[in-house]
Design a protein around this nucleic acid. Structure first.
Lengths: 337, 337
DNA sequence: TGTTAGCACTTGGGCATGTTGAGTGCTAAT
DNA sequence: ATTAGCACTCAACATGCCCAAGTGCTAACA
């Protein structure tokens, strides 16, 4: 019996099932795909595929559906990433227009991706650990309340409020700002904890406690900047495409809300040489996502930050992978420039 | 027949239905509530309530469920807002701890509210139209790319990128910053469009195009600041509490994603003298929310910004209203201070 | 050895029918 | 105004039946 045909059968099963949402049987298979053999032969092949754990039958006399393992094989060896349609390319291109504020871009990107794929789209903020300090600002909100703003050369702005033990004056803040800026401008956010204390130490004693508080605030901001965040869009697609939910959406919504979970999930996805990484069903480390798949890839400098989508295991992998990859490329291009 | 008892019956129906999720019949009613009469009497009362459109029977021989109108009457005239439990008070109090960055606070508040009510919680950013300019900053990201930062005295920071037609130098930006700041520091964000052009006009001709671009950027930021945003949490509760969904969550998720819809919804809710406003089922202007209720109230200066929750019409109004009110009060206190 | 036709077998889904129990509305008595 | 009682309705559940889809197997075939 022929190995290539067996794969062809698996492909046909996956494609039909993704399309129809119903278990697919041998007969329907020969009708819809011009495999040159009869349904009996296909049955034999299917029996083998089932032995290997690539497909399964929900009950005795129904068709077969792909297992996680089946999808995996499909993704790894069978499917080809399809090129995008012209309309899709156009949609992505129009992303180039408009203001190129990082937040704005990410927000629009993720919305676009969710529309292209009809899934929930997620994007991680670019890593900033290697970013450098471009500017800092201290603003007096109230006598003892100081807004600290940290601007990185990546264009990211972080802000936070610091409480002073004693009243602070505007001039003091100005002086400290100049002092701090002189020492840390251009240095990596990573290194703030090492650099800042020495700056504080060099301050005149009268200002030292205030300087200490501000330094702490700056450190916190630098850390927060390193610490990851994400934006998502398209949660409504969960309900839409799963009307007869093979994917019970409760746990998935939970996962999405626990941003920590999603961020780890994305970060942990190994980079795939083919450009897009796929994690299928129970391969996912998080229980709530045992019926979901994640398709993600890196973008930006070093592909360190991730962008991707989340959907039911039964999804159109080729198109989805193509969309994710294309969007990530455009995103890299925009942010890189 | 007695009017007060009729209301009592309505209250009992609402309470039982909210609790059990099942149509409630006359017999069950007399068993669980010590109304001093028999089930037959209750039946008569129920017939009247039905005539008035306050309750309805899903089919001939089932119990009754409250209609939107029934809930409305319940909320307006029958229910009393219950005091919060000690545990709830404690939870709210612990909100006071931690950094008091506006974003942080709102995020934690909304999460808390969603946990207290088991619903989706939504909070609008405080209105900033009356806020004043505290500080501005121009940062050169690339020769023709300038990051514009606008800091309001409310502590809100807005940022955006401006493209210059020609290369800009750091010194030019510094000069312009001083010039702009001198003219607009302390003036209302609202008034930026009136004030900025005159500043540009006073610039030396060499800088004028650059100044124009920057002014445009600032205006955009001021506008964005005025233009409303929201944070939400607890979407997973939609799936959880509606396992046997009386509330089909698809349209609701859509509404939540269309932030514009939610923002209008919140803004349009008239302030209720009792402190919390409730919009029930079809009372909602948005179709997708015809099976949902919104409980909201204002917070902060002038109660101009809104906070609230969104859930199925069948919800525990007294407790929910209490939670929303309490959280809004604490939020006002924190942000006010 | 791989392919095919044919056939017996399994089983979920649809349908028609019967039964039950919760709940109602009405009437007559209190 | 309230109540007891009763006939009536109807969703929910159960039962039994049949059908179609789909399988696995065997025997014949190239």
């Amino acid at each position: 019996m022929s190995e290539p045909r067996k794969l062809e059968v698996l492909r046909a099963i996956v494609e039909d099932y993704v399309h129809s949402r119903e278990p697919v049987g041998s007969k329907a298979l020969v009708e819809r795909h011009h495999l040159g053999v009869s349904s009996a032969t296909i049955r034999n092949d299917m029996a083998l595929l089932e032995e290997e754990g690539l497909i399964a039958a929900p009950h005795t006399s129904a068709g077969r559906i792909p297992t996680d393992k089946g999808y995996r094989l499909f993704v790894d060896r069978i499917s080809e990433v399809k090129p995008l349609s012209a309309a899709e390319r156009r949609a992505i291109h129009s992303l180039l227009e408009g203001p190129d504020d990082v937040e704005d871009i990410l927000e629009r990107t993720v919305r676009l991706l969710s529309q292209l794929t009809n899934q929930v789209a997620v994007v991680q903020y670019p890593h900033l650990s290697r970013a450098r300090v471009r500017h800092i600002e201290f603003v007096l909100l109230a006598p003892r309340q100081i807004l600290v703003v940290l601007i990185a050369d990546s264009g990211k702005v972080e802000q936070g409020v610091v409480h002073a033990a004693t009243d602070a004056a505007d001039e003091e803040l100005m002086a400290l700002r100049t002092r701090f800026l002189g020492s840390i401008a251009g240095s990596q956010l990573d290194l703030m904890p090492q650099v800042l204390p020495s700056v504080v130490a060099l301050c005149p004693p009268a200002l030292r406690t205030l300087a200490g508080a501000l330094a702490l605030g700056l450190e916190r901001l630098a850390e927060r900047s390193r610490d990851e965040r994400m934006v998502m869009a398209g949660t409504a697609n969960l309900a839409r495409s799963n009307v007869d939910f093979p994917l019970s959406i409760g746990p998935v919504l939970e996962a999405l809300e626990e941003q920590v979970v999603m961020l780890r999930l994305l970060s942990d996805m190994a980079e795939d040489p083919r450009g897009v990484t796929v994690s299928i069903g129970r391969e996912n480390p998080y229980d709530g996502l045992s019926e979901a798949s994640v398709v993600a890839t890196g973008y930006g400098p070093g592909s360190s930050a991730k962008i991707g989508i989340l959907g039911p295991t039964r999804m159109d992998y080729p198109n989805t992978m193509a969309a994710v990859r294309a969007v990530a490329r455009y995103l890299s291009r925009i942010l890189g420039g």
